[in-house]
Design a protein around this nucleic acid. Structure first.
Lengths: 232, 232
DNA sequence: TGTACATCAGTGAACGCGCGTTCACTGATGTAC
DNA sequence: TGTACATCAGTGAACGCGCGTTCACTGATGTAC
């Protein structure tokens, strides 16, 4: 009886990984549109056609990289959050934001792949949806816990919110998994927006000449965004 | 005596424009990295080498497109702002934000070119800096006027702001052209960040499944950001 | 106003390159009896 | 445990394509006298 994972299967998994590692390295140098199956094959030491045993097309390889990127940033967020005491909401928020940015800074092209300009003529398949939400789940979890621990109160909002927006919020509410006002949901979505807006602005060069201590500025603004949401 | 703009010069200017128009059209279809001199030449009805009489390289053409894009979005912002009564700060803010988003929505790839993932191996030359600031100048102008008209007061801030950030703010303060607290400057930078963060999130597909009435949501959030800054 | 020369736009061929994907093949690994 | 067959990984050649850029050229437009 052959082992549950046969030699062939193990080697295959390893090579699949090697290909992805090479592809990521190439991505970092050339960007998403410069990613070439042939170049990847060369780096791994295969003939170009051999790569097709592992990925049926260039787009499938891109998809794999996108899923990996979402999972990587999601895992970074989850780990940073999990390393904090659960009732230390402030620390959890800052640690998570910082972890996400740190991942983005050290994986610039991968960040650009998922949060930058979409690759033209490439449609992200459904498999990317779940990994894409991991980060959001962490952020929302912190806000939910803040509510649960009574660290913030959810006064149901002096803000007048248009009907069409209110009906949009049902999906976001599902993520919350608890009673929450439209007002707080919107603030949460805005915080999420701002987090990635700030990272993109920095990494895509729009703060050159305006901000030099990016660490400090990011920290400061994420603290303010926390306050904006109602967090301590 | 030949006319100030000779026939040759006029034709040259026209063809230069035609080339840019074709390049923009191609950009919209293929994205920045798919932009090809040969394809542009084909569309204009020139042989590929002829384009070199107008742009010395593909990168120079890209630079021209980038400058045009910054100018287009800057002009859209300026016009929207200028169409409002100067003391109607709230309206000016919303009109400017909407105009920027509207331009982005209808010029997606051009937006991506300047606010998305940087094109790999392409370094934006200095000529792009001035056009890039036009939008910022408009936004800051509104806040400055709000201060001047006494619509907002600039209480110098309960927030504790780290030293390294304070020293960063001198450039932003220059844009302001008047006395302004560090606190208000930071809020302004954050509003600017949020504006483009929101547009990018929408256009790059990160609000799919969360927001469906993008117009309404954008309006609402930009109103809240205005309040965050202290605007009415 | 007319001629001689200089400038410039556009041509067409060529260089050298890389790409994604297909296909018939060899040889090694796994499977069933 | 050994043999016969099926599966699979990797090869190498080929197809058909497009790209940026250079270069010697023709013919038209502009300039100076």
């Amino acid at each position: 009886m052959p082992p549950a994972t046969s030699v062939r299967a193990r080697v295959r998994a390893e090579l699949t990984d090697e290909i992805k590692v090479a592809a990521r390295r190439q991505l970092a140098v050339e960007g998403a549109s410069g990613l070439s199956l042939r170049a990847v094959a060369r780096e791994v030491g295969l003939v170009s056609s051999a790569v097709y045993r592992y990925f049926p097309s260039r787009d499938e390889l891109l998809t794999a990289l996108i899923i990996d990127a979402y999972n990587a940033v999601g895992e970074a967020a989850e780990k940073a959050d999990a390393a904090c005491r659960r009732n230390d909401i402030e620390k959890r928020w800052m640690a998570t934001c910082r972890a996400i940015r740190a991942w983005a800074v050290s994986n610039l092209q991968e960040y650009g792949l998922v949060y930058g300009t979409p690759v033209p003529d490439y449609r992200a398949p459904e498999e990317t949806i779940v990994p894409a939400t991991r980060v959001t789940v962490v952020l929302i979890g912190i806000i939910r816990d803040a509510l649960e621990f009574g660290v913030i109160t959810d006064q149901s909002g002096d803000q007048s919110i248009p009907r069409s927006i209110r009906s949009d919020l049902s999906v976001a509410r599902t993520f919350f998994g608890g009673a929450v006002s439209d007002d707080l949901l919107i603030r949460a979505l805005m915080a999420w927006t701002h987090l990635f807006g700030a990272i993109s602005f920095e990494l895509f060069g729009h703060r050159v000449g305006t901000v030099s201590d990016h660490d400090a500025f990011f920290d400061h603004e994420m603290r303010r965004i926390a306050h904006f949401v109602g967090l301590p």
